[in-house]
Design a protein around this nucleic acid. Structure first.
Lengths: 337, 337
DNA sequence: TTGTAGGCGTTATCAC
DNA sequence: GTGATAACGCCTACAA
């Protein structure tokens, strides 16, 4: 129907000719401000429709130095929460006219590459949603200076070159700590994810110190190598197998839901324990699984959509970059603790 | 360290000047064939390194009409299997030098938009990983003709404009049917996902007809509105509540794991049944969850990485487009059936 | 409101 | 092997 199939796409020039105007007028017609008369605009749009014309974003980016592209770097696809974030980010950024470049940075080299291509594609921002090594990578990254903006999403970064968009881990974990304290448990265990930099230990630190100052006892902790439910399953299993029966925890506070889900499974299937009957467990993130009847996980829900919204505004330069690491979510109390 | 921070990125021109060659030589140095003398190449590369130069992909795409960009359209983030696909696709395409544009096409309008921007960004291919409406959308889509390639991934499409990369549903489901038949069940139920076009009914049809021709009985079926474990949970619950006790199925064959997981949860938590003790369940996809102790789901594993590899080759024009809808995976037998 | 230069940083192609 | 010319399709000025 429209235009000539199999041929090259129409350009502003073609439309201009058909509409009887200059091609600059055509380009203007496709911008929001559009200082153009209604009549010519109509004519242009009609011609454009007939030729199935749409402005070339490559040429536009090249000329304007704004790509409306954001690249998302993810190094961990084992945590189901990543899918939730991707959904929110693509939805919200898309609504703002920003396209998303998704990059799998499973290896360190990949992250360097990703940052380099991000620059080569002139992305307006590179967003790290990685769990691991973010800070080290940012610090090392060559060419970081030419990337529009460097943003760490859903994780606090201590790197000054980057801006963090995340919840206030300290206050979030304080709320969780209070809840756990009110449960009357006496032997808590904190299950942490991969240890990288100091900023990442905030949840653990907040819980441990909060508990200690309230009870006088310093909780145990254990570290899992990645935010993967299956790995948590294995590590929790071997850890608890090494624990004398009488020194078992009665509540396991996990750094996030991925760890919590693996923990609950291990407790059930490796040790035949009930949650919360024999042992309580808490998470962080409120992934879809957390709400399942099988888990009914007490957790903390981050305002992902609002955070994504903030990200969009930062990228578009419509928002001040202060307070972005102070988002507040809410405690979701279910049956697991 | 390198170059001048906060300034604009270096161009080939800058490097040329520093290396004492012309800028065309610089550009040539950055291509694989590189018809260039070793000495000048060294000089150029050294200069490039000093200036932290990297070719501008926007300009390259504009001039060459190849963007090395593939856009992935996803309309359903509730199915955890999507994360597995995204991991494989980003990993494999990335290894081939293809970047991935991720687009959330939750609404029909979004898909049209996505296809349009795909064209505007001159993607080399648009890949639909949607579960719903793919065919209708493809058929309606304006501007489809200007998109390098239109590919439907992990789903058979009957649309001629698109090429499907997927397993042979018929043979895959035949294998599953045989397995279920050998289990000695007598009242199977097929749980299907959203019904769209005929191609999508292949698994159901294969199972139903296979069972019928083997036993003489035509299995019941039930339809779930989306590939969402939680929705499956609800719909299975209400469906079974309407079933007289004596006409309950003894095996539920699900179109995929998302439905199977929701089904198992519903059986356990709404009806107190055991799987496979009281009832067997099968899935399709072999998502990570399927391997969990909680489910131990018998399912069918698609060769996602190989399919992603094929996709890369098709996009790069290195592969014939035949047999792409005939991939073969393997039956994964666990405890659920 | 509309038209005009000049330039964005490459690639393709042809000279040397 | 290297240099040069002409696109690629648009945007930011500025002039009419």
């Amino acid at each position: 129907m429209a235009s000539t199939p199999k041929s090259k796409p129409a350009t502003a020039e073609d439309v201009a000719e058909l509409a009887g105007v200059s091609r600059w007028t055509v380009n203007r017609a496709f911008k929001k401000d559009a200082s153009i008369s209604k009549r010519t605009l109509d004519r242009v749009m009609k011609a454009a429709a007939r030729l199935d014309y749409a402005p070339d974003l490559l040429a536009a980016s090249l000329a304007s130095d704004r790509s409306n592209l954001v690249s998302l770097l993810i190094d961990d696809f084992a945590n189901p929460h990543k899918l939730v974030m991707l959904e929110a980010l693509t939805r919200v950024l898309g609504a703002h006219g920003l396209d998303v470049l998704l990059v799998n940075t499973a290896s360190q080299k990949d992250t360097q590459d990703a940052l380099r291509t991000a620059r080569q594609r002139r992305v307006d921002a590179a967003v790290l949603i990685g769990s691991q090594l973010s800070d080290d990578l940012i610090a090392q990254a060559k060419g970081t200076d030419h990337i529009g903006k460097l943003i760490v999403f859903a994780r606090l970064s201590s790197e000054v070159q980057a801006v963090s968009i995340c919840v206030d881990d300290r206050s979030a974990m304080a709320v969780m700590t209070d809840h756990v304290l009110s449960g009357g448990y006496s032997r808590p265990l904190f299950l942490a994810g991969p240890q990288t930099r100091s900023a990442h230990l905030l949840r653990q630190q907040t819980f441990v110190e909060g508990w200690q100052s309230a009870t006088g006892f310093r909780p145990e902790d254990h570290v899992v190598g990645s935010y993967d439910p299956r790995q948590a399953y294995r590590q929790v299993t071997s850890f608890l197998k090494g624990c004398p029966e009488d020194s078992w925890p009665d509540v396991i506070v996990c750094e996030n839901d991925a760890l919590a889900v693996g923990t609950i499974d291990a407790l059930r299937h490796e040790f035949g324990r009930n949650v919360p009957g024999d042992l309580a467990v808490t998470g962080f993130d409120d992934t879809p699984q957390a709400a399942d009847q099988s888990y009914q996980l007490t957790t903390y829900r981050q305002p992902i959509s609002a955070m994504a919204e903030a990200l969009a505004q930062v990228v578009l330069g419509q928002r001040d970059e202060v307070g972005l690491d102070r988002f507040t979510g809410e405690l979701v109390i279910r049956r697991s603790a």
